[in-house]
């Protein structure tokens, strides 16, 4: 069994969101980069757990990004990825990125492909589903639990207002979210070992970009909080009713 885990680089969750170049690019000054939390905590750690249960499983990582992504790829290797593939390009269009991963996936013949449910910077929630269409395999999104029995996966996924259990034969693409696994911290042995694990770099294959970012902007600042004295909470209810027309 071969599993491919798609990992992307995002600004740390506390990073200040600001824009440069006349609001056309994200201001990266002083920003700490992390593995997108859904990719790390849920997709990657779940894959590691599957391998712990069945050591014959092979764990490969896929990333589409520039050389500055390598530190986060090494971290993913330190956590438990065995071999990584980076497609060297900064293009961020979802279809372009999905096409690159699809190319890697076809070459590696994977049984299972994991993505995070979405990136916390672009919030596309698109690449997993695109990949499944490019590979013509089933897609289960928002998975919170997964069990493998040879070639059959039993997946619990979130639906609006509840959960649903699906059963399917692999290959498949599955997008992972909270519930799949718990966050882990790489240990020293993992960190040392990661340095010598293979990280293959390839140039992108030709693919179209369907979209492009024109500009960014920030939401208008809040006018400021209106404080209501703690001994008159009924005043809050009146304001919500008459002023905000919210209840």
């Amino acid at each position: 069994m071969k599993i491919l885990i798609c990992i992307s680089k995002t600004p740390d969750t506390t990073a200040k969101i600001a824009f440069a170049d006349n609001n056309t690019s994200f201001a990266t000054d002083g920003v700490q980069w992390i593995i997108n939390p859904y990719d790390e905590w849920y997709a990657l750690v779940k894959a590691i757990e599957l391998k712990e249960a069945d050591p014959s499983i092979v764990l490969h990582l896929a990333n589409v990004g520039g050389a500055d992504t390598e530190p986060i790829i090494r971290k993913a290797l330190a956590l438990g990825g065995e071999e990584a593939f980076r497609v060297n390009t900064d293009n961020t269009d979802s279809f372009f990125v999905a096409s690159q991963i699809a190319h890697l996936a076809k070459a590696g013949n994977y049984d299972l492909i994991f993505t995070g449910k979405e990136t916390i910077d672009y919030n596309g929630a698109s690449i997993g589903a695109m990949l499944s269409e490019l590979l013509d395999v089933p897609f289960i999104s928002h998975a919170v639990k997964l069990e493998l029995n040879n070639n059959v996966a039993t997946v619990t996924r979130e639906i609006e207002g509840g959960e649903e259990i699906n059963k399917l034969s692999l290959p498949a693409v599955i997008s992972c979210q909270k519930g799949m696994a718990e966050q882990r911290i790489p240990n020293m042995k993992g960190i040392m070992g990661a340095r010598s694990k293979p990280l293959h770099v390839s140039e992108p294959v030709e693919a179209a970009a369907y979209t492009s970012i024109v500009s960014f902007d920030l939401p208008p600042a809040k006018a400021g909080v209106k404080l209501i004295p703690a001994d008159h909470p009924e005043e809050l209810v009146r304001l919500l009713n008459e002023e905000a027309k919210a209840i």
């Binding site: 279809f95 997993g128 269409e133 928002h142």
Partner: peptide, 20 residues
């Protein structure tokens, strides 16, 4: 959840750019 699973797949099928 449903839209997120569908729109990108349809986007690939129809070669139609998607903004989610």
């Amino acid at each position: 959840i449903t839209g997120k699973a569908l729109a990108p797949r349809v986007s690939v099928r129809l070669k139609a750019g998607l903004v989610s």
